[in-house]
Write a protein that binds this DNA or RNA. Sequence first.
DNA 1: GCTTCCATCATCCAAAAGGATGAGAGGCCA
DNA 2: TGGCCTCTCATCCTTTTGGATGATGGAAGC
Lengths: 236, 236
Amino acid sequence: MTQIATSENHPTRFQREGLDLVNNLVPLSSSGFYLVNADMQHRGVVLRNIEPAAERSYLRNFQALDPLNPALFTGTDTRVACIDEQLSESELLASAYYREFMQPMHHRHVADMFFRRGDDIIAVLTMLRTSALGAFTDSELALLRKLQPFLEFALNTVYLPRRYRERDSVQQLYGLTDRELDVVELIVAGASNKLIASDLNLSLATVKTHLQHVFQKVGVSSRTAVSAIVLGALES
Amino acid sequence: MTQIATSENHPTRFQREGLDLVNNLVPLSSSGFYLVNADMQHRGVVLRNIEPAAERSYLRNFQALDPLNPALFTGTDTRVACIDEQLSESELLASAYYREFMQPMHHRHVADMFFRRGDDIIAVLTMLRTSALGAFTDSELALLRKLQPFLEFALNTVYLPRRYRERDSVQQLYGLTDRELDVVELIVAGASNKLIASDLNLSLATVKTHLQHVFQKVGVSSRTAVSAIVLGALES
DNA sequence: GCTTCCATCATCCAAAAGGATGAGAGGCCA
DNA sequence: TGGCCTCTCATCCTTTTGGATGATGGAAGC
């Protein structure tokens, strides 16, 4: 999309690359890659062909009903879960989750790839198909299960440590709120306000408001200064 | 700043994980993952079922003859090269490279996956098969080619950042002139154009001209993106 | 209930940055 | 000498940022 998208520092680059990978390997109508914290809250959501409104609706109303809810898989060592393996077709089609959430979105088949740190699930890659695309075949699921270890390794060792360490220390140092920190992360990655707005699903006005608060807290008056100061603080 | 656990604690972990991945996905009799520097010297070699002596023999005597020598693929965008695509069977079997190197090691089929930073090849994952395992099929090669972008991305975020540390390397990396580099340095420090102008005793117009050239060379369109990219290249 | 944060969005205005283009002076080199 | 590069500066115009201010809904806490 823009030059920013290719920046190595972009916080969601890893997720986008991961989605590219699975989309190249198995046909999908929609997909998403989200990080979860200990409360199973979604963070850093990256979606392919899914409306942000659908994501919000899921979080608000349907997450608890999700047969692939990651909370159901903590303690197991499941790498890839497929909804067709969890429920029979008749069970699924009769469920409120299917009728009220999946069907309106034209999702028929779902497979989730789980990523763990220790026993905790720290990220989920969701793969969705319309009925036209057909069910996930055994060989596709086998492929995905072979893929999972490397993705999990890369996620744990190259991506999350940096991201989390940076986020925590910067947030504490300047007393930033969660949302302000989201904005700062993208500022440091070199994103424009417009890109930040679309990345975080905010209006431009909201981005600017957050940014003004950041300027106040950090004690500067330009985005580049924020970038310089934040990155400087991280080196010490 | 942030040290990446992989490169710090287990320098070859990334390569081992990568080899595990491809060995899980396609049957191989031997495999290797090596990093190369600008002179095509091997570094950080990790081998599966290959004698270190064979590697030394390759470097000493056969590298120059290798039809998959990465030097032959700089400037291309080949992701995965297969020896059977480069040479006909009769050509291969007649070659000194085959008779004196591959055959004694019982290698019959070879595919190499190349990893680049910009145009330079920075790493190669070599996959080897005995004749009993058969040639790499089109679908296997297709799978490997789909895998390559993600591996390349992950490799670049792990390994390469440390290669471009100093001011000099940033200048070389993007072909910046001295004056342009002066400007970049102040950009990264968070300075406004006005401040840069007064710091360097230039007019605002000159600063903007330099900056436009920098944008072109680095391939971005905003100062914050320059900052992000330069600092990203320097981070360890 | 009331207050205080947070997150969201809006409008209006001013300042800064970015894009396109031209151009002159000096150095270097074949 | 002519060509090429670097560094310098200019003008004109568009887009983006930053600053000020106000407003709403929700969550948390007293």
